[in-house]
Design a protein around this nucleic acid. Structure first.
Lengths: 148, 148
DNA sequence: TCCATATTGTTACCATGGTAATAATATGGA
DNA sequence: TCCATATTATTACCATGGTAACAATATGGA
């Protein structure tokens, strides 16, 4: 997360960057605007999921399994890789999804270390229920934002 | 933070949004790209500050006090408001800055509840030391990113 | 004036991200 | 074959965001 309600005036960034020619003020300002807008949107999304006792990461776990072509399940490590999140966080998130009955785990047929995660019927239902509101929230947020 | 290494193909978003005309696929994709890029940049910045035993939020507290026109100090609530961060987090962050000797607190002249936070000489030095690398990091990140 | 209400900063606690270390299992080269 | 090494998932713990509740203090209307 990045917080700074009022971004620095471009004049101020220029004052800082004048000594360092590799950092031009326009680029810095674009980055600060991006981080602030993204943080506000993430905060809104987190609030949306938290209100339903859920979380964005749990939702994204369902998404990456659901959208996998040719397959309907993924191993823990594959989920971590597709989400670019650490494996301990994947463990915790998937366990909460199992507890909620939205996914289930089965063992690999010969590698006993691996766990195959599959979305349950309830998980698919939850995903379909959340998607429209999720997209509507993003769409509504973006409509109130200056174009890039 | 938002994680999803591979964003959904626009075709997939269209599949989801076809039923919900208010959410057009281009807008959604733009939001997902923004959140992913911003999360990657924030992660890089957090790593940069953590490597020096610091944090982005501590840095931003110094920034908002330093850049305040006509004044060289701010009250806790003012810091929280300018950073759009909760007051408990402000308390904790400012306390760590005090412990590090980078800011100091004095009381309001008649309102005994309020605390005035001022940057010390060491704090100004730290700020000047961090700024060039901070801007260079952002600049370098943005140069490897597709334009909006 | 004085008491209900608001405000300031803090504490306590929860959620969710990370890294380091570990146990169980697989693998591959001597 | 078998032992060093790698990989998978997990546990333990840390950092940093949040809200709820609190004590101290200020304020304003009856």
């Amino acid at each position: 997360m990045f917080f700074l309600k009022e971004l620095p005036a471009k004049r101020m960034i220029e004052g800082y960057t004048a000594r360092y020619p590799q950092a031009d003020a326009d680029t810095i300002e674009r980055a600060l605007v991006m981080m602030r807008d993204a943080s506000l949107l993430v905060r809104r999304i987190d609030g949306f999921f938290a209100a339903g006792g859920f979380s964005q990461l749990r939702f994204l776990v369902l998404i990456v399994i659901d959208r996998e072509p040719e397959r309907d399940s993924l191993y823990m490590t594959e989920i971590a890789a597709r989400l670019d999140v650490s494996r301990p966080v994947t463990t915790r998130t998937v366990q909460s999804l199992i507890k909620a009955g939205l996914v289930e785990a089965t063992g690999h047929k010969d590698d006993k270390r691996q766990k195959l995660i599959t979305i349950t019927t309830a998980g698919h239902a939850r995903l379909q229920q959340l998607l429209p509101d999720y997209y509507a929230l993003i769409s509504e947020f973006m409509s109130g934002r200056a174009p890039d």
